[in-house]
């Protein structure tokens, strides 16, 4: 509504008219060469940008899965239904994101963008944690690969039943994946994605051990698995943490990123010791309280009935 600008000869300038040629670059013998190199670099930068965006979203979703899983109180073959459904819906979103970037990180580009794909570590952490809560075992790299491939494939097929309820939140259709032909490309995990994901798993297990012990009064892993043939005490999370700690202590240090490895190993050691301390406390102080005693805040879970 306001006025408009006029050019030198008094004619109104159009707002959306063709812009004056953007800063004319002086052309010389080398300009064409640089233009073609520019196109190559742009392709790379744009691709990385797309990957970084998706990666950030996948990281956030994975963290949310982990938070949900931290609300689990004991290890059993089925996650509580409400938590399972939270996890499923997040995984569905992750699947879509993975499917969008899958074509970008095939072949030579897998390692090219490895550093922009830190999200995979986070995803490994979430998946290994979920697996631990269900089975009390560590899932191997080889077992995890098909899971992630499966996720990517689900994300590619839009009218999958698991997709139906997943809300379409993030603008995931950044760059639509090419129509799925015979075999849609999938995302592969590198050894480092797996290892560093498992490093972080120890932290989550420590947190889980702490909360579940505080709230249920028993060491996770111990109570529920009784009567499955084991004559000894069932294995607790203390033992599992020791095993994980030993695994990392015994593995040769990857020479690629020694610094990061040492840092993660130190954190793992601390987590192991925290859980150790927890086990010790429970033996010492646990004897002072009746079996099955639980703090008042969760008093609805039935009273301890027998004293030993």
């Amino acid at each position: 509504m306001s006025g408009f600008k006029r050019d030198w000869s008094g004619n109104a300038k159009r707002r959306d008219g063709p812009k004056p040629a953007a800063k004319q670059v002086v052309r010389n013998a080398y300009t064409p060469m640089f233009e073609s190199l520019r196109n190559e670099l742009d392709e790379h930068h744009d691709r990385r940008e797309r990957i970084v965006k998706a990666s950030r979203d996948i990281t956030a979703l994975s963290k949310k899965i982990i938070f949900s899983l931290q609300r689990v109180r004991k290890i059993e073959s089925q996650l509580p239904a409400n938590i399972q459904s939270e996890v499923d819906s997040r995984l569905a979103e992750i699947a879509k994101l993975l499917a969008t970037i899958a074509p970008e990180i095939q072949g030579i580009n897998r390692y090219r963008y490895a550093r922009s794909l830190m999200c995979l570590e986070e995803l490994v952490e979430a998946l290994t944690f979920a697996h631990y809560l269900r089975t009390q075992t560590l899932i191997s790299h080889a077992e995890l690969d098909p899971t992630i491939e499966d996720l990517t494939r689900k994300g590619t097929v839009p009218e999958d039943e698991t997709m139906a309820d997943a809300s379409d939140t993030a603008g995931t259709a950044e760059k639509p994946a090419p129509p799925p032909t015979a075999e849609p490309p999938t995302v592969s995990l590198t050894q480092d994605d797996y290892l560093y994901g498992v490093f972080d798993l120890t932290g989550e297990m420590m947190r889980f051990a702490t909360t579940s012990t505080a709230l249920t009064g028993t060491m996770a892993g111990g109570g529920s698995g009784e009567g499955d043939g084991g004559d000894d005490e069932p294995r607790t999370i203390v033992h599992d943490m020791h095993e994980l700690g030993t695994l990392f202590e015994m593995l040769p240090v990857g020479s690629g990123n020694r610094f990061q490895w040492e840092k993660k190993l130190e954190v793992t050691r601390q987590s192991v010791q925290k859980v150790e301390r927890l086990g010790y406390d429970r033996i010492i102080r646990g004897s002072e309280r009746p079996k099955g005693w639980i703090p008042d805040l969760s008093a609805d879970q039935g009273q301890g009935d027998e004293l030993e």
């Binding site: 089975t135 075992t137 560590l138 191997s140 790299h141 499955d228 084991g230 994980l244």
Partner: peptide, 14 residues
């Protein structure tokens, strides 16, 4: 028998 926390083969592979 509950499976062990870490499959011994896993360590070797890594």
């Amino acid at each position: 028998m509950a499976p062990p926390m870490i499959d011994p083969a896993l360590f070797e592979q890594l």
